[in-house]
Structures are given as C-alpha cells and as structure tokens.
Design a protein around this nucleic acid. Structure first.
Lengths: 247, 247
DNA sequence: GGAATAGTGTCTTTAAGACACTATCAA
DNA sequence: TTGATAGTGTCTTAAAGACACTATTCC
C-alpha cells in the first residue's frame, strides 16, 4: 500500500481546557485572550502545546490548569473530553487538540498565563448563545464540554466538584440549577440526594449563620455513580414529553 | 517560559478501532494479528497511522474499517472513543492513538488487511477476562470501548446498529442481552421498546418463517435518545442494590 | 414576634419488576 | 395436533412530580 520510504506524517499536539465553575449562582467558563497569532486578541480556551516529547497529556492539562488558575490541583476534577483534529482547524499546520473538562469550586480571579494577555470568567450562556466568538474551533469544544457536564451530573457525583470540601444541600441544588439552567423543586431534591446513600455524607457541623436557620454541612461521599440518577427535566418551553432528540 | 528557539514536540497519530458485532448471539470484537514489529504475531486492534498529513481522523478510521472488514460504511456506526497517549505505550516513539468505537450488524468473515497477517472475530468475553493478551495498551482500549457500548445502549438507539436494516424485537433483545451479558424479561422488553415511540418503527411485513409464528419486522426509528432509558440490570451475582461504584 | 433561611410529608402518577398464558404458523 | 416461535396483560413496587407547611436561628 505504501512504498518503503513512506513514514507517518507527524502532527502537533495541544491540550485545551474547558474549565467550569459557579460564580454568583451561574455557570462560568474560563477564557483567555490570545496574546499571539493566530487569532491574536480573540478569546480562547486556555491551553497549549506539549512541553517536551515525554510529557504526558494529562500532566500537560494539569500544568495548563495551574498556569491559568493558580490552583492547587487537589480539589479540581479533570477528565479527557475529546480530540479535535480537523485539518483546517489551526492555520499553523496539523494541530490536534486533546480537549479536557475541568470542574472546580468557586475560584479566585484568574491570573494571566503564559500565552494569555488576559484571563477571565465568562458566563457559559454568553458562549452557548454564540454572542461571544472564540478562536479556532473552541466554540464547539466549549459547547461539548458544557454538554458533557450537563449529562454527567445526572449519573455521577460530579456536581460536588463544583462545591468546596463542605457544602449545604441548597448549594448543591444551585449547582444543578446553574448547570442545567432549570429550577428544581427543593423538597424533591432533598428527598433524592438523601435517598442516594453514599452520594453526600453529613459532616455533623452547621454552616455559618447568615441570618436564618443554620444549614447542615455535607461532603462528597464515596459513591460516584448515582442510581437512580437525578434526571434532568425536559426544557419546559416545548410541550409534553420532549425527551428524545429527532435525528 | 520557553526560549525563542523552542518548538512543540511532534508526535505520530494512529487510529485504532474497537469493532463490535454480534455472532451467534454473542458479542464479538475484531482483532488482527500484527504482521510487523512491535508486538509481531500478537493480537491487536485494527488500526494504523494517518496516511498523509491532510487526512482527517474520522476518514482514517473509516479507511481502516473498510480495509479490515470490506464493509460498505453505510450501515456502520462509528464514533470517537478516547485518546491514548501515554509516553511509554508504543516502543516506536511518541505515538498517540485516537481510538474509535465501531458497531456493525453481523459481518462477513474479515479479510486480511495491510498491516495484518490475519483478522478474526473474537468473543468479547475472551478479551474482558484477560485470557487473550493484546498488543500495546489495546486491552485497555478494547475494555473501554465495550464499556462505552454497554453504557450507550441504555440511553440511545445504538443497539439497532448491531442489527441489519430490518430486525425483529427478539433480535433486538438479543443485542441487549449479548452486550450486557444478562437475560431480560421478554414481556417487559416488548413493553419498553414499544412504549418508546420513535425508537423502532414497524415495517409492515413479517420475517421469514423458521417454523413458528412469523415475527413482525421493524427498523430503527428517528429517535436516537431513549427516554425513559432501558436500564441495565445490576449484576445478579452480588446482593441487593449493587448499582453505584465505590471510589 | 418577625424576618430569614432550612428542612420535611403526602398524594398522585409513571414506569419498572415479576410473572404465565394466548396466537400464529409449518409439518 | 403438535412443535416451534411470537406476542401480550396484570399486579406489585419503586421512584418521580406536584404541592405547602414546620423548624431554627438572629434581630
């Protein structure tokens, strides 16, 4: 099929990050302003090339994450999202991006990183709506990352990654509401999360009193797969049972 | 951070395929015997390097798929699975594999492809059990692919990809039973798939009579997301509610 | 006592799980 | 009529959805 002189074409690998957090009860996404060509001056996902030939992809993702957020990686969830490798996606040549999804509790304001002249938290809605144009195919990547988070908190304990080490049930509910963009019934939510043994465990103490009854504190329990799941409500705009996309 | 002379380290990209099908009511996986070093003579997933610099990753996956299965790609489901890029995974250097999951209806016996001296359908169980040793990190990739299929047929109409264009409900049930490795109650299964409007649609005609009552034929409907989902039964070996992995 | 926030209880409805019989065809 | 396969109906149980009140704290 190939003659003997054939050798596989080399490509360049980047790691890009969809970093999600909650700020003021809304889902936010970390974007940087690109400091170099291509797309100089345009908002983009944090990320960059592998540092050296032996660097592991996941290590590179952690490195980029701490460069942008000055975050001790301890409390951050980080997982691979997907690969984006269309040949036209980067004008510098064949650049393959391994996108990652990171989820962290409310974070300090970001610090400018290596390739970024500026970094900022942006409401996810601004990206989803297309209002904010992103460099490369980062709009698509960000959308996929948010969608992954929306799906995953249904069946896993991932939502707790948006909270600090200790949190109240009301805070956890806010996570679901912000990520899904829906409102949930408080009473049903309490019933659900408490019925799922091992999802959250009470810590014993109560939260600082902000004027009302103090809230019980919980932390993430050992269970990472939720069964039965917390089902995401169908978007209420349309009628009846709207689950089930058409092809 | 880097001096001006720094440039990103190039890597090589391969595409590997977890190709699943049903044969004699059991889940099978296509493996090739490696014809070259490294791991010469050892079973491996079908796959190979990008052909040329401009080749799209998904196109490369389709190309490898048809090289190994002589399959018109029309009736095959093909999706990206994950990236495997640990620095030690390939002795030839830094080789990143973009793994794909392919699902196809009962296929003709495979033809030997470019890099393969031999290709064969192997029961998935032989791979999962670790009985069969695979080249590179292909055991891990195959396991992840099978797990993806097991998860995905719960919430999507993916199971129909294992069937031909027209199939009976009993055949669809066999898909679920083979992929999950469980038995399902016929009556509840009929109720579920028929209650989920748009999952399967009757074709009108009946299947060739093999001696009993002819079965109604169906084809895949327009709905790709199943709600409510077909829940995978908990493995019966252990007690009670065994859903929910511990960390 | 009033304002503020936390936490719960019940009824209805939907769907899962368990279980056994009837229907249609060919020989 | 028998053998073979296809197809269904009912009761019980689990969990989702809707809905409004009680509890604890601070002032």
């Amino acid at each position: 099929m190939h003659d003997d002189a054939w050798s596989p074409p080399p490509v360049l690998l980047t790691v890009d990050l969809v970093i999600l957090t909650l700020r003021e009860g809304r889902l936010h996404l970390l974007l940087v302003e690109r400091g170099k060509a291509p797309f100089r001056g345009m908002p983009a996902l944090p990320g960059g090339f592998l540092n050296h030939d032996g660097e592991e992809i996941l290590d590179a993702a952690h490195r980029e994450l701490s460069e942008e957020t000055a975050l001790t990686s301890g409390w951050v969830h980080l997982e691979q999202l997907a690969v984006y490798g269309e040949s036209g996606r980067d004008p510098r040549g064949r650049v393959i991006s391994v996108a990652h999804l990171a989820i962290a509790p409310g974070l300090p304001d970001p610090v400018a990183g290596t390739d970024a002249t500026d970094a900022a938290w942006v409401p996810a809605e601004d990206v989803l709506s297309g209002e904010l144009e992103l460099a490369f195919d980062h709009h698509r990547i960000a959308t996929d990352g948010i969608e992954r988070a929306r799906d995953k908190i249904e069946f896993s304990s991932l939502a707790t990654a948006f909270c600090g080490e200790e949190f109240t049930i009301a805070e956890l509910q806010q996570v679901y509401e912000a990520v899904w963009g829906t409102e949930l019934d408080i009473r049903n939510f309490y019933r659900k999360v408490q019925a799922t043994k091992g999802f959250i465990v009470p810590v014993g103490t109560n939260r600082r009193t902000t004027g009302g009854r103090p809230a019980r504190l919980y932390r993430a329990g050992p269970k990472t797969v939720l069964f039965p799941p917390l089902i995401r409500p169908a978007p209420s705009a349309t009628q009846g049972n709207t689950r089930g996309k058409e092809e």
